[in-house]
């Protein structure tokens, strides 16, 4: 548990994650108020990373649930291990036969088998999926629900229900209540509008591309070998490329990749040939690539030089 917002910020920093004031405030509030955090923002700005870092600094295990179209309750909550149940009944056929051997009538036999229900519908045969594992966990966890916008609205409604009382009922076993309320982080890329209910339930955090100073700090932190001037040039160039109206503007993860590749290439400063040959690290669409190449002069104009 965190005591102050500053502590959150510092601990994230120690774990090599630059958290803005806004991010740390939301994390602090979430830990205090026991609310899920919904993070929205363009791809690659560190939404998932935030959850991972949170689990790292709080030393709570991370349970990750990746959403996709067609994800349903069974895959998110639990499934019975049918095959195993079947196998066990096959193996135990003799014992079952013994059990019902001296039953005088059919109803008696059924009763006897019904008495053994628990043997087959127990935790032994239950395969917990991410949601149930978060609820069953002995220790507090961080539950990451990644890309919730990819799942269907119905699943979202179901998730909302789980997130509001942290208990699920398995008909054969009864209601299971969470021992610890996990810290929940949901991320969304805004592929579709999320429902109001879910948004209402969550603390909302919008992470955008970082300001140049922050991005510089991130690059220095994650790629410590990079020369100072080169890092500044990278940030400035990426900023300019972002303003070019691309289909997918480069985000933090891409600028980090780029910085790393520049370090590997032993670059001291950015020049046209170098940028052109490494541009694919930054820009992922053919059309965008052409556009950036066309505007290369503008991108490279008055960058900080070594």
């Amino acid at each position: 548990m965190f005591q102050t917002v500053e502590e959150v910020q510092q601990r994230f920093r120690d774990a090599k994650y630059i958290a803005t004031r806004r991010i740390s405030t939301v994390v602090y509030l979430a830990s205090r108020m026991g609310r899920p955090v919904l993070i929205e923002g363009p791809a690659g700005v560190g939404k998932t990373e935030l959850a991972k870092t949170l689990s790292e600094i709080s030393s709570r295990p991370l349970i990750r649930m990746q959403c996709y179209e067609g994800l349903d309750e069974a895959k998110a909550l639990y499934e019975w291990k049918y095959a195993k149940q079947l196998l066990y009944t096959q193996l135990l056929r003799d014992r079952i036969g013994e059990l019902v051997a001296n039953a005088p009538s059919l109803p008696d036999a059924v009763d006897k088998i019904a008495g053994q229900d628990d043997a087959f519908f127990s935790f032994r045969f239950l395969a917990p999926r991410p949601l149930l594992s978060a609820i069953l966990a002995e220790d507090p966890t961080v539950l990451l629900v990644d890309e919730i916008d990819k799942a269907e609205p119905e699943f979202e409604a179901f998730l909302l229900e789980v997130l509001s009382d942290f208990q699920v009922s398995v008909p054969e076993l009864g209601t299971i209540r969470a021992r610890h309320i996990p810290w929940v982080v949901l991320t969304s890329n805004n592929a579709r509008e999320l429902s109001d209910g879910l948004k209402r339930r969550c603390l909302h955090l919008f992470i955008d591309f970082p300001a140049p100073a922050e991005e510089l700090a991130i690059i220095r932190l994650k790629v410590p070998e990079i020369p100072d001037k080169l890092a500044e040039a990278v940030v400035a160039a990426v900023g300019k490329i972002r303003s070019l109206d691309l289909r997918k503007p480069p985000s933090v993860s891409e600028s980090l990749d780029w910085a790393r590749s520049l370090v590997i290439l032993n670059a001291k400063q950015l020049d046209a040939a170098l940028v052109e040959s490494t541009l694919t690290m930054l820009v992922k669409y053919e059309k965008d690539l052409e556009r950036v190449k066309g505007a290369l002069d503008k991108v490279l104009a008055d960058l900080p030089q070594a």
């Binding site: 917002v5 004031r21 806004r22 405030t25 948004k199 969550c202 909302h204």
Partner: peptide, 19 residues
């Protein structure tokens, strides 16, 4: 959060009100 820091205060309001 309290009122000490304007940015933090703003972030707290934003995260609860702006969805």
């Amino acid at each position: 959060i309290g009122l000490e820091d304007r940015e933090t205060f703003k972030a707290a309001l934003a995260s609860t009100l702006v969805k």
